[in-house]
Design a binder for these strands. Structure first.
Lengths: 191, 191
DNA sequence: TACGCCCGAATGAACGTTCAATTGGGGTAA
DNA sequence: TTACCCCAATTGAACGTTCATTCGGGCGTA
C-alpha cells in the first residue's frame, strides 16, 4: 500500500468540502476538478466514476475515524477512563471535521450506502463492539448487547458534534461533561 | 387550512418512496410524476420547483412527527410513564415509516436544510424542549439543559429506528426495553 | 364562452464521461 | 553524453444523455 498520490488526496479534499456545501447533487465533477486544481479527465485517471470516487472517499474518511478509536481504545487504561477518552476523542474529531461529518451523514443515508458491508463486517463498528464487549467482560457495563451500546453511544456523540459543529447550539465544557456523564450513568453497571 | 388535494398527496407519497430508494439525485421529476400517476406539468401546478416540493414535503412529514409527540405528551400522565410512551411512540413511528425516516435524514444533512429555521423556532424540537422542561420542573430529571436532553434522547430513538427499520439489526422487545431503561437511567434525577 | 385543472412533448442547460493530443521523466543503446 | 523512445500522467474540448422546467393545448364544468 503505497502512499496516496497527491492529486488523489487533493481530489478527496475538494470533494469533501464541496459536498459539505452543496451536497452530492450540486457538486459536479467539473467543480471538483477545478477546486482540486486538476483537469476533469484527471479524476477519471484515478477513479472509475463519480460513484467510485464517493465510495472510496467514504472508506478513506472512515479510516480516519477508525484511527481515532484505535488511538483511544487502550487495554491498559481502566475501562471507565477509556470510555470518557473515546467519547471526547470521537466528539472532537467530528466537531473539528465538519465536512467529513456531513459527508458521512449524507453517505449513510444515501443509496450509495447499500454498497456497504453488513454491520458485522464494518470495521469501525466492529471496533466499537469489541470496546463495549470489554466493558461488559470487565463488569463495568450493564449486560446489554454491545451492538446496542455501541450504536447508542455513537449516535449520541454524532448528534452532539452536529449540534456544535454546525453551529445550531453552543455547548460549554460543562455541558459536554454532563452529556458524557448522563451517557455513562445509563450504560454503567448498576451496583 | 383546507385538506390537501389528492394529487398533491400522491406527489408527496411518491417522492417519499422514490427518495428512499434513489436519494434526491436519482429521483427525477418525471419519475415522481409517473409514480404519482400525474403528468410532469401537473407537479408544477402545485409546486414552484423541485426544491420547493422537497421543502414542503419536509414540513408535511414533520407535521406527522409532531402529531406523535402531541399525542403522547400528556400532562395528566406521570412524567416517567409519559417518557416511555413518547419513546415508544416515536420509535414505532419512525420504524414503520422508513421512507419518511430516510427522507428526514437525507434532508437534514443536505443543503436544503439551511433553509430551515434555527432550532429554537423549530416546532418539533420546541415541543420536545417543553417536554423535558416539564420533567425537570417536576423534579423527575437531572438539571441538564432541555436542549441537550431532547437531542440526546431523540438521536437515540432515531438510531434505534434506523437499525431495525433498515434491517441492519434485529431488536427484540427486551432489547428495546433495555434501551429505554438505559436512556432513562441516564437522564432521571439521581436520588 | 370562460375558467381551472391537467396533460406531455419540447426545450435548453447541466452534467458525467470520453478521448485525442500533449507533456515530461526515466530507461537504453550508441 | 546524446539521441531516442516509451508510457504514465494530464489536459480540456466535445459528446450524448438526463433532467428540471415550460407551454400550448385539451377536457370538463359553470
Amino acid at each position: 500500500m503505497e502512499p496516496i498520490a497527491e492529486k488523489k488526496k487533493a481530489i478527496f479534499k475538494s470533494t469533501l468540502e464541496l459536498v459539505r456545501e452543496n451536497g452530492f447533487h450540486g457538486t459536479p465533477m467539473s467543480l471538483v476538478a477545478k477546486h482540486a486544481g486538476v483537469a476533469a479527465g484527471t479524476i477519471y485517471h484515478y477513479f472509475e466514476s463519480k460513484e467510485q470516487l464517493i465510495c472510496e472517499l467514504f472508506d478513506y474518511a472512515q479510516q480516519q475515524a477508525i484511527a481515532v478509536v484505535e488511538r483511544e481504545n487502550c487495554a491498559v487504561i481502566p475501562f471507565e477512563e477509556c470510555f470518557f477518552r473515546l467519547w471526547m476523542g470521537l466528539y472532537t474529531f467530528y466537531r473539528d471535521n465538519t465536512d467529513l461529518l456531513k459527508f458521512f451523514e449524507q453517505f449513510v443515508n444515501s443509496p450509495y450506502d447499500t454498497t456497504r458491508p453488513p454491520i458485522e463486517k464494518d470495521k469501525f463498528y466492529s471496533l466499537l463492539f469489541q470496546f463495549f464487549e470489554r466493558g461488559i467482560r470487565e463488569g463495568e457495563l450493564r449486560e446489554v448487547s454491545p451492538k446496542i451500546l455501541a450504536t447508542h453511544v455513537h449516535s449520541s456523540i454524532i448528534s452532539a458534534a452536529k449540534l456544535t459543529g454546525f453551529g445550531r447550539l453552543k455547548l460549554e465544557q460543562s455541558d459536554l461533561e454532563q452529556l458524557q456523564l448522563l451517557l455513562w450513568d445509563g450504560i454503567k453497571r448498576t451496583a
